[in-house]
Design a binder for these strands. Structure first.
Lengths: 406, 406
DNA sequence: AGTATTTGTTGGTGCGCACAACCTATCACG
DNA sequence: CGTGATAGGTTGTGCGCACCAACAAATACT
């Protein structure tokens, strides 16, 4: 049943939701006092005490004294994340399969990069499953409960089927299902830019904002993630956020997607790397080189500055459209778009939203992504955490938690 | 607290939510059997019986035998909307203030159009309040509980302040507040296109879809409403949905907003009315005249057909961008965009999403708005219903309902 | 040391929903 | 036209959960 104002609830849903709300807050803040929880959630002190007790019993969190705090009144114990339960985060790329174990609070506990040239989906699943088992064995005190995959391509909502990943040459691969079988645990897959935006929203440059627009520039194009009222926008089938294929110039050059004048065709990373004369820089190297080149030129008419300026111009047109369309609170730029932004002059940056509607544009903050190279793994972990945080007592029966917890 | 996975609940929230869910379903379907409710909401039969009983006691709904149904088993009573409680819907326009009383189920019970040339906000509030009282007096068996206003302009989220309504010449008018005071009841205001999209979503061409993109073309421009996963997208401050100010051609002509190449600058209603030689046609007249002109020409190179074709071209560019960005399930076109769509050739229509990403474009259904001239009033009523349906027992104490009912 | 302040703890209360058993109304079929 | 099957409303019981109020504990201020 779509578009209903509210879904019905039963009595057990109350407990589930409240446990979930507490755990979620501990997750995003990595440490909260019980007093904080009562204030933030508006529940009764005794209720919070009870809920935290349940989470402790199930091995999700620990309680300990809060040294740092001071002030009148009885000190409130700090509720902190624990490494008893982990999730696996997986990011298959052109020549490497990146796997990590991530704890509650989004911290990477272990990470291993395995080099494989253009893996098939089957190979990727196999390698990922093996590495997850290896890393898991190296952390015997912890248990991995679920997995999330960040895929550079279009992933169908619901079943996590990769409809198209041009960079990897995948087409209609039931990735999440295969991984679920190979690992014997819940697994989910989603577009990498979507997950990047989730990571930035929860732990990075999007923190505190309710509606965020995230644009990431990579070697194969520009992807994006949209967050509205705190919820990621997936679109009806999961393919939302393709900001790279916004039409920016109807008479523009052809794009790999078959259309003309797409943003990603007009603002390619390759143009920037070529301008600074680097073959395969990572994002940090590109960022540094661009800044250096622009300062060296000193003048906005220099060759590198001109390219930066031209690209920023196209980006501004896209930003203007999307700002008018979605009225976001914050825009987060990642990858080469971050480098482009930082290399642009203050004037050009200030002018980037000059053509957007004033009421909308004045309150938008444009920021550079904060999470760097771990972004996709953290985002993939968030995806895996979703189901667990939504129902913390279902996934981990009390006996299991009690049995191996000292 | 923004972007949290779930908000906490208390025990009373269960009742509230379930009452709200039942009432909402009756509202959108205008008549549901108790058996339907049990199935749709997944609650126990006894619970549904109880909830319906409460709604009946508070004067929201009636129960009566369902004549139409047939089949084995005990017949289930039909839960139907009642006219005991109404909301006021208000739509101030350039030269008329349109006021209606709307019942649960979105049906217009009474409507009065009052002609006023370019009213100030104060005048509009005064006239609206007077007309609401008049209509209210003509329906003594009913009570008006809340009001909603559809404003042709940018309305701030939260307080319903009209930041800018160029057509009316309003600027920073605290409309909702003024109306709340004048009427002595809750009042809310929102952008007219947003409310149009809500009306189409609930009762019109958007029914059944969870993510809908709505574009409406009027004499003063193109507005839009976005619905994602069943929820209207307002943006951080309420100004989302300005599809008319999507950049479609960076070298295009200047728009009233100060930018260049906005969709609404390139697809003006005036061009179509001029092409068919009508001065001030309403949407239906324009639609009929366009269809007639195009069929008369027979040929795609005729003058009217050319204009239609050119406008559809620009519209297609905008649709392509937004489809790639939001992956909607359905697109609903209203006003002159509906006329434009219907006057276009089948080939041109089929080609309109040719440049969008195939996975996204194949499942999009493009439809023409279904609700006609009542759309904005129904949408404004929806806005007013929001608060009432969210908490049906709070607004109407039992005594009040019992006292004047029966 | 005494008081004010903040917070955790405990037992009692109310309430909403699930469940099961029972009752009722219709249809189908011989 | 009666009997069985089917669908669905009705009633009473029990459980779970959050709230509340009073109490206990741990700090800071004077």
């Amino acid at each position: 049943m779509p578009n209903s104002r509210s879904t019905p609830l039963d009595t057990t849903a109350v407990r589930r939701r409240n446990l979930s709300a507490v755990l979620d807050l501990v997750h995003r803040r990595r440490g909260v006092t019980r007093a904080d929880l009562t204030r933030a959630l508006g529940l009764n002190r005794s209720t919070i005490g009870d809920l935290v007790g349940v989470l402790v019993a199930h091995g999700w969190v620990d309680e300990r004294d809060d040294q740092t705090r001071s002030g009148v009144g009885r000190p409130s114990p700090l509720v902190v994340t624990r490494d008893r339960w982990l999730v696996a985060a997986i990011n298959p790329e052109l020549d490497v399969i990146d796997v990590a174990l991530v704890s509650l609070g989004g911290e990477i506990v272990a990470r291993r990069r395995t080099f494989v040239e253009r893996p098939s989906a089957a190979t990727a699943v196999e390698v990922a499953a093996r590495v997850v088992r290896e890393l898991s064995a190296e952390h015997p005190q912890a248990t991995v409960l679920a997995a999330g995959v960040a895929v550079p391509g279009l992933v169908r909502r619901g079943d996590g089927c990769v409809r198209l990943a041009p960079r990897l040459g995948w087409r209609d691969e039931p990735l999440a299902e295969a991984l679920r079988e190979a690992l014997g645990m819940p697994a989910a897959a989603a577009n990498d830019a979507h997950l990047g935006s989730r990571a930035e929203l929860t732990f990075g440059a999007g923190q505190g904002a309710a509606s965020v627009l995230y644009l990431n520039g990579g070697p194969s194009g520009i992807g994006g993630g949209i967050v509205v009222d705190g919820r990621p926008v997936e679109g009806s089938a999961g393919y939302a956020g393709e900001i790279g294929h916004l039409s920016v110039d109807p008479r523009g050059i052809a794009c790999a997607c078959g259309a003309h004048g797409c943003l990603e065709a007009l603002v390619p990373r390759a143009a920037l790397t070529a301008a600074v004369g680097l073959a395969h820089p990572d994002d940090d190297e590109l960022d540094a080189a661009l800044q250096q080149a622009v300062t060296a030129e000193g003048d906005a008419t220099g060759p590198v500055s001109s390219i930066v300026r031209e690209q920023l111009g196209w980006l501004s047109i896209a930003l203007r459209s999307v700002v008018n369309l979605l009225n976001p609170e914050r825009i987060v730029l990642g990858g080469h778009l971050a480098a482009l932004w930082r290399a642009s002059s203050a004037d050009d940056r200030a002018a980037s939203l000059a053509e957007a509607l004033p009421v909308t544009a004045t309150d938008v903050r444009i920021e550079v992504a904060a999470l760097g190279a771990q972004r996709l793994l953290i985002g993939a972990a968030e995806l895996a955490w979703d189901g667990l945080i939504a129902d913390p007592t279902e996934v981990v029966p009390l006996e299991a938690a009690g049995a191996s917890a000292s």
